[in-house]
Amino acid sequence: MKVQIFSDVGCPWCYIGWRRFTTALEQFPHRDQLDIQFGSFQLDPSLPEHDHRSESEYLSQVKGIPAKQVAQMLAHVTAQAKEEGLDYDFDSLVVANSWTAHRLIQRAKAVSADAAIQVEERLFNAHFERGESIADVAVLTRIGVESGLTEEQVQEALNDAQWEDAIRADLAQARAYGVTGVPFFVLDERYGLSGAQPPATFLQALTQAYQEHTQRSPLKPIVTDAADDADAALQGQACGPNGCD
């Protein structure tokens, strides 16, 4: 069963959402039957490749969020990340455009799903925990090689236009699904789940989608016991063009 995860490596909730999703996978008995694919998404395509501002300054100046609210938001996200075993360091975070990083992810997808997952995880770690630039060629080369790509494949990712075309194809697919914020999970090309949901919600969604995998019922939102309105898709914590929850 196909699982698409639309994500931006500059999105703090995407890393948390991925960690919660993997927790659910550990309890899902059919995890070996899943074809997990990361889809590229950009929250802010206008960012320069390298930005001199801190994350707090960027959110205040570009997104128009008051400084006090930014501090509260980052503290909240950091606490949520800590609960998932992640050590976010926004003071050291390097604000950078994620386009080049997405090129590497797309090249890794052509190697294997596992390679793409490893690249994605290492990019998240570099950006949010290690204070490294996800637009730096040396950083991307190291991450690519550590994830099983050859140096030649990494150079191809950085220089061949076909990987930009692959990014644009993902962005078009996201628009077709109506994705406006990430992370966004699409199960079996029929079920949409928005945000960094709790592991139990991911597990219930996976179970429901897998059980109906061969039935091909019409597209509908995942509904779980946590939903107040059975006709509304669950909205978890996510990042959009105007900031993060």
Score class of each variant (00 low, 15 high):
residue 91 D to V: 10
residue 101 A to N: 11
residue 112 S to C: 05
residue 139 V to C: 12
residue 78 T to F: 03
residue 154 V to P: 02
residue 125 N to T: 12
residue 137 V to K: 15
residue 75 A to D: 13
residue 109 K to T: 08
residue 94 V to M: 12
residue 131 G to L: 03
residue 147 S to V: 05
residue 142 R to S: 11
residue 114 D to C: 06
residue 100 T to W: 01
residue 160 D to I: 03
residue 121 E to Y: 11
residue 151 E to Q: 13
residue 117 I to E: 15
residue 87 D to M: 11
residue 149 L to E: 01
residue 75 A to S: 13
residue 109 K to R: 12
residue 112 S to K: 06
residue 79 A to P: 05
residue 161 A to I: 13
residue 153 Q to I: 03
residue 161 A to T: 12
residue 159 N to P: 04
residue 115 A to L: 02
residue 103 R to H: 08
residue 168 R to A: 09
residue 142 R to N: 14
residue 156 E to F: 00
residue 88 Y to S: 01
residue 166 A to M: 07
residue 132 E to T: 11
residue 121 E to P: 02
residue 161 A to F: 11
residue 113 A to G: 14
residue 163 W to R: 03
residue 78 T to L: 09
residue 113 A to T: 13
residue 162 Q to A: 10
residue 116 A to C: 05
residue 116 A to L: 02
residue 133 S to P: 09
residue 138 A to N: 13
residue 160 D to T: 05
residue 163 W to C: 00
residue 155 Q to K: 11
residue 145 V to L: 08
residue 87 D to E: 14
residue 104 L to C: 02
residue 126 A to S: 11
residue 96 A to M: 06
residue 140 L to W: 07
residue 119 V to Q: 04
residue 86 L to H: 06
residue 139 V to K: 09
residue 148 G to M: 01
residue 143 I to P: 06
residue 83 E to F: 00
residue 74 L to T: 00
residue 84 E to H: 05
residue 161 A to V: 13
residue 141 T to K: 14
residue 79 A to V: 08
residue 105 I to W: 04
residue 76 H to I: 06
residue 113 A to C: 10
residue 91 D to K: 12
residue 159 N to H: 13
residue 131 G to K: 00
residue 162 Q to K: 15
residue 95 V to H: 00
residue 107 R to D: 03
residue 82 K to A: 15
residue 164 E to K: 13
residue 136 D to N: 15
residue 109 K to I: 06
residue 87 D to V: 11
residue 84 E to M: 13
residue 161 A to L: 12
residue 124 F to L: 08
residue 112 S to I: 00
residue 111 V to D: 01
residue 119 V to E: 00
residue 113 A to S: 14
residue 91 D to E: 12
residue 161 A to G: 07
residue 148 G to D: 04
residue 107 R to P: 04
residue 135 A to M: 11
residue 89 D to P: 03
residue 164 E to S: 14
residue 98 S to M: 06
residue 143 I to T: 07
residue 149 L to D: 01
residue 116 A to K: 06
residue 80 Q to W: 02
residue 75 A to G: 09
residue 98 S to D: 05
residue 109 K to E: 08
residue 119 V to G: 00
residue 113 A to F: 08
residue 132 E to W: 13
residue 111 V to F: 03
residue 92 S to V: 12
residue 125 N to P: 00
residue 98 S to R: 08
residue 85 G to A: 07
residue 98 S to E: 03
residue 94 V to H: 10
residue 78 T to K: 15
residue 77 V to G: 02
residue 167 I to R: 02
residue 93 L to V: 10
residue 119 V to I: 10
residue 121 E to A: 14
residue 77 V to T: 11
residue 81 A to P: 06
residue 140 L to D: 08
residue 83 E to L: 14
residue 158 L to S: 01
residue 90 F to D: 00
